[in-house]
Design a protein around this nucleic acid. Structure first.
Lengths: 212, 212
DNA sequence: TCGGCAAGTCAGCAGTTGTTTACAAGTTTC
DNA sequence: GAAACTTGTAAACAACTGCTGACTTGCCGA
């Protein structure tokens, strides 16, 4: 659980293949450590010294590379959003949805890091960061709604969107319960365990059954 | 949103019937303020001075009445658990479940304070408090599971319990999304708006369909 | 009425927080 | 090889954190 990440390069390497001084590498070390810490303990629960220690880097470099703790948090958010956006395709179909969600939540999806979803629920009080959070969550909700037939201006739009947001809430809730309480059997459920419940949930919530 | 309940008076009581010096009353003021603060901003995001100010009370009294910040947090948790336990009856039926959940989440249930659910997701790092949180969450999950036919030692127990926990996750997720992002239409949805989706969700997730 | 005690106030403590500054050490360029 | 720049270090800052101890003030029973 110490400083990983090699920082390999061509010139200026040490025997271990790590550059002794590498701004980009150091920045990334800080970013990775911060994303883990912020996701796990929240903004106020994480100190800059925690992050620097976990990254194996001097505290002052946070201010240098990210201006401030808030700047670092915002960078974390941007990084997480970027990663998560690739996780569930914007044009996923309703049939594939349960599988995609189960894989993401259980952490076996392509490059999936479920704990990064938590970043979207951690507020720093910073207005810009909160804006990013809100926009991302809304964008996810729209993906789910779209899979369920929602279109902007759809006559029944609000009803479908509400249901999509309830489905999204389930996703966040599962990640949260898994990480913050050791609730079993949910916490150790794999994607195959989650698939059937998610299928029934999506079916019940988003599958159209006539006009109703 | 400032310090309410002034407690001014000349003799014993003020016009509002509140005593100027009243240990039990002051304790309660602190407890209420703390539950709001902790639920909204988390443990580390809340300072004892915040709480005291919101309660209109001197900071030192927190240590006097609750020993420490952690002691106060634990008391908040106990209070919230006690309230929430009455919210959804332990022996609620599957048919009544969607209605009860919708009412609780939308804040129109009997003495319902949805934001207090958030307390169950806020960790202080204190082991005793975390124990309370975990036990409470597990107890809620068991209520849902029981409504779906789960019994201890049930042959199909794990499968039902997992589904009940997914349903519970939806509840937490909804409260969280409503409070931490202003996601619409979810955030302003009333119990009547939530009822139909919750009905379909519970039906899909917990309603038995033959053996499978 | 008044002494004793509970309730509340105040100032300050020791430690932590985010951030800055001055400096040392490495890297590149000529 | 030396100047010019970049990267990293160490120490300290002011503000804030939870908490404490000595104190004042109000209340009740005798």
């Amino acid at each position: 659980m110490a400083t990983s990440s090699p920082r390999t390069s061509t010139t200026g390497e040490n025997p271990a293949g790590q550059r002794r001084r590498d701004a980009a590498g150091t920045r990334q070390l800080l970013l990775d450590a911060a994303r883990r810490r912020f996701a796990a303990h929240g903004y106020t629960g994480t100190t800059v010294r925690d992050i620097a220690d976990e990254a194996g880097v001097n505290v002052a470099l946070i201010s240098r590379y990210f201006t401030s703790k808030e700047g670092l948090f915002e960078a974390c958010l941007v990084g997480a959003v970027d990663e998560l956006s690739h996780a569930v395709a914007p044009d996923v179909t309703l049939d594939r949805l349960p599988h995609a969600i189960a894989a993401q939540l259980a952490g076996t999806g392509l490059g999936s890091r479920p704990d990064q979803f938590l970043l979207l629920l951690r507020s720093s009080g910073d207005e810009r960061a909160d804006q990013i959070r809100r926009n991302t969550v809304r964008s996810f909700a729209e993906r789910l709604a779209t899979a369920a037939g929602w279109r902007p201006g759809h006559p029944d739009g609000d009803r479908i969107m509400l249901r999509a947001q309830v489905a999204l809430a389930t996703g966040f809730g599962i990640v949260l319960l898994r990480s913050s309480t050791g609730l079993e059997p949910l916490s150790s459920a794999g994607p195959q365990d989650l698939l059937a419940p998610m299928q029934d949930l999506i079916d019940g919530l988003l599958r159209e059954r006539g006009a109703r």
